[in-house]
Amino acid sequence: MSEPAPTRASPWLLWLPLLAFAAFLALVAYGLRNPAPREVRSALIGKPVPEFNLPPALDGQPGLARADLADGKVKLVNIFASWCVPCAVEAPQLAALKAAGVNLVGVAIRDKPADLKIFLDRNGNPFSRIAADNVSAIQFQLGSSGVPESFVVDGRGVIRYQHIGEIRADQVPLILAEIERAAR
């Protein structure tokens, strides 16, 4: 092997790193001005539930439409799914709310009747009616980001409160208080 010829980088090559860095800065500065959205918050609190009409989730039961929510009684609309683990964890709290006299309405998201039946057999069915939302339509309309989520809707069909995530045992009184407030 021979000694390599003396190599000296030509001067403009030494500025290449700075150039690459400048390009990176431009790219990132642009990206920083357009941050990606992270969390969806319902902007609908205090507003009426949008128009919708959903088929029943289980055969032989009534479906759910906007008119059903504006029948003069406060309701807790629970968005859930049989494939959602926290929903199963939430079940005892929903049962407690039903025992306290709350009118619960369920919306099953992207679910199958057979799965739903097993879920309800295992965890109990606190709902007066369950609608099937197979394209997450109502979810988008209500501005909810995931399951489970619960909405307190007053007798005029106006959304009064949104609860993100499952309702925990220590939050049952909070939900009851919100329902009472909505009934006033």
């Binding site: 000296r8 030494l14 790193p17 700075l18």
Partner: peptide, 14 residues
């Protein structure tokens, strides 16, 4: 920092 250091590199490395 990095811009400064790289500019210094461009000036001095040769």
């Amino acid at each position: 920092y990095i811009g400064g250091a790289l500019a210094l590199f461009g000036l001095r490395a040769a």
